[in-house]
Design a binder for these strands. Structure first.
Lengths: 231, 231
DNA sequence: AAGTGGTCTAGACCACCAT
DNA sequence: TGGTGGTCTAGACCACTTA
């Protein structure tokens, strides 16, 4: 498991410790001088390693303060439901998830766990669904993942905590579709109403396919994207 | 125009030279040792400055070879038409642009140049339009920009070359809409066909609003997005 | 006041590329 | 083979936060 460079090796070791929960999310990180002693290198090399972790969204820095573990979510936008439900939770709304289908399916390239969910929020007036998600995850990477109840637990959290696999990069295609009877009923719109649908493939850092997902968004849901030229 | 750090100041100076075309796109960049002499700093500091430019997508590096100026486009996807038309050009298709409206409008926050275009490609069978774009650019940043003929010249290129302003960051909202009579005719679909519409605000590095644009995409146009967790 | 991270120096050796 | 960028050392001083 050796890497060519010292700093990549150090980053790999620290990343592993973060992933395995040895350094917990939000906790203070060992100081740079501690790390120089531990790894027997100069501070420059330690900082080079830490820079990688910062760029990966695992570590947050600010001058004078101790470095902290901060696991950044895959997007900062309402692009996937995860961040959306977090926003709702803070606004005193309760996220709900209704499993429509949870089964193992066979494809050309192996077996997949297929999870179909309606997701939304619970309000006084009743449940309002915001997305319809059809997810496929490869069983080769996530053996026995069908034993979890995803109406209760988060899929991404399960991937991270139970399997140590971390979504890193996503590719999406966007379409417009017309609401069919089921979607119209679920989203409380008329049949034929135009809806946004996204088909995504999510990969981890090693480039392995982690998830194939198709999402139809309710019209209330404002889909925001942020893109940079660089950085 | 002084910055607090030496490396930020050096990066700012080099960035300016790249933007102003002193170092042209694709050309070799001064070597790191040359830059240490020019700015009278160590190589570490020069490299710190260059790292910023690499992250901004202005510079490309590889070991042993000279650093090169490489101006990365705002997206690598079919997200805006620019990259799409570039792809088409290489496939021996001719991009076309039909100006529907080009006028100055007044808003609460100043005057804007409003440009509405149908854009697409010319084929043997005829012209096929792929996007309908409604663009508004502030006259405060781009005085007399209405003198250009944007059926011929690129809007982004004009911003860059004539005004030295460089699109950096974009925020988008995505909707689904139904084709009205005009769009149906332009895109050769039936009225009521579902289409993807994006409303974008584009900012430059200083955070100034450079462009407000709404784009409706033809159904043939596959909209691809790539997103990373970090880096 | 002590400790932390941010910046910067002045070197060194190496891997890689072009000639 | 000479020059380039990549890595790394062993220091130093500063800005900032925390106690």
């Amino acid at each position: 498991m050796e890497s060519e460079n010292i700093y990549t090796a150090i980053a790999a070791k620290l990343r592993q410790q973060i992933m395995q929960g040895e350094f917990k999310d939000g906790a203070v990180f060992p100081s740079e001088s501690e790390l120089t002693k531990r790894f027997q290198v100069t501070r420059t090399t330690v900082r080079h390693a830490l820079e990688l972790l910062v760029n990966e969204g695992l570590l947050s820095k600010s001058q004078g303060r101790r470095n902290r573990v901060q696991i950044r979510k895959i997007t900062k936008t309402t692009w996937n439901f995860a961040s959306f439900s977090e926003g709702m939770r803070s606004a005193h709304e309760i996220p709900v998830s209704k499993v429509c289908k949870a089964q193992i399916i066979a494809a050309d390239d192996g077996s997949y766990f297929n999870l179909v969910r309606l997701r939304g929020i619970k309000r006084i007036a009743g449940i309002q669904f915001m997305t319809y998600e059809d997810t496929k995850v490869p069983l080769s990477l996530f053996p026995q993942i069908d034993r979890f109840d995803f109406s209760v637990v988060s899929l991404y959290e399960t991937m991270r905590k139970e399997y140590g696999i971390y979504p890193f990069k996503g590719e999406s295609q966007i379409f417009a579709v017309l609401a069919d009877e089921f979607l119209a009923k679920s989203f409380a719109v008329t049949e034929g109403y135009p809806l946004v649908k996204a088909v995504q493939s999510i990969f981890d850092r090693e480039g392995r396919l982690v998830e194939k997902v198709s999402i139809v968004y309710a019209p209330e849901l404002i889909i925001k994207l942020t893109q940079d030229a660089g950085h």
